[in-house]
Design a protein around this nucleic acid. Structure first.
Lengths: 208, 208
DNA sequence: GGTCATTGGATACCTCTACTGTCTAACATG
DNA sequence: CATGTTAGACAGTAGAGGTATCCAATGACC
């Protein structure tokens, strides 16, 4: 298909598609001639993925590029390396290498017995957030964190279960990405509702 | 204290503080004269909160204003109403009122037996995300969602436990906000690490 | 073969957000 | 009185995420 059809099917304007091509989010089509390139279903799929990451999840274009790059690199290898590349999500400002928080996180991971790469960006992200909370007078010690971590373990089991039985490595990698990244807003929404429910239960917001 | 001291203590430049004052994120100090206003510890605390919300969590200035507004309104009343106001987080684009997804979410909430306000924005947020995932060929049916929801219940219990024993209503509301909003990146980081760990466990990324 | 809309590629432009800089008159402080 | 700080107003800036326009080269239809 040509770019105009790609635009029609995806609902993304031609100029925006060109922009994504320029920015390296979308691979170029097969060049047929100087004025024609051929796009296919992969491009359409990729385009939908881009819109989901930038729109629903709110990732920046540059982060999206990194994420998609990781997807291409680690196909077949999936979660392990995907997780490694994905931490770059979130708007964590360059902080002064909070080594206190980092040590705290490393200790936590060890206590949990988790097999997590040393350079996993999630470690940094966690240290960062905990540091901020501490600065605001909400110190979360290990005792408070471990129960959350155990729940995260259960979540991860559910996540990986979703990926069972997918054979095509490309499909697998993409599905893993979607579950890791796009499910986040959904889980947070569930948490919000669960909080409201729990709050009602405790403080007698009794049902009529 | 004067604005320059507020700036020094918070690490935020005077001009930026003025910007936050203009934008209504920070309440004005007590006006002493035409050229002097008096700020106190509350302002400092608020300023740190603003930086945490915009920096760590990546909220926009306008969303931060809404969140802080909700904080002021619902002090003492906390989670119930806080949750109601907080859904406006996340970059959910104006979608075509996905009524399919909405019905799905309402059904889920009913099955769970949750006491959640009809107009809770988290309902919309969830419907939105599930719609996107469906559009990308990852339909999550109720059977897949309920286990996640049960985990969210446990998370909410932990969250509310953290708020136990706080008497000052202002303190309580602020703490609730921090736990709801700022803990999100931390929980997601834990999930990422748990995924990596689980992936290693399943696919034999054996420890040396 | 002629005609005309479409395409790829390049570049300029636009809008929004989150600040930042500068100016001024009115003070505060020594 | 001299000096420095402050509130308040307003213009300017940098980056992100597109959008618009132009152009020459086509390709499809007649």
């Amino acid at each position: 298909m040509r770019i105009s059809e790609l635009s029609r099917l995806s609902g993304v304007s031609v100029t925006t598609i060109k922009y994504y091509l320029r920015e390296g989010l979308l691979p170029a089509g097969r060049q047929r001639s100087a004025t024609q390139a051929e796009y296919d279903g992969h491009h359409l799929r990729r385009l939908r993925l881009i819109r989901a990451l930038t729109g629903v999840r709110g990732l920046s274009v540059s982060t999206t590029r990194e994420v998609l790059g990781a997807l291409a690199e680690h196909t077949g290898d999936t979660h392990r390396l995907l997780g490694l590349a994905l931490g770059s999500i979130g708007p964590f400002e360059d902080s002064a290498e909070d080594s206190t928080g980092r040590a705290e996180v490393d200790g936590l991971v060890e206590e949990l017995g988790w097999d997590v790469h040393d350079s996993a960006p999630a470690r940094v992200a966690l240290a960062e957030t905990l540091g901020s909370l501490r600065g605001l007078g909400v110190p979360l010690d290990r005792g408070a964190l471990v129960p959350y971590a155990r729940l995260a373990e259960h979540t991860a089991v559910l996540d990986l279960d979703q990926l069972d039985g997918i054979d095509d490595p490309l499909e697998l990698a993409e599905r893993a990405l979607l579950l890791t990244v796009l499910l986040e807003p959904a889980l947070m929404a569930l948490r919000r509702m669960a909080q409201e429910n729990e709050s009602a239960r405790r403080h007698g917001g009794g049902r009529p």
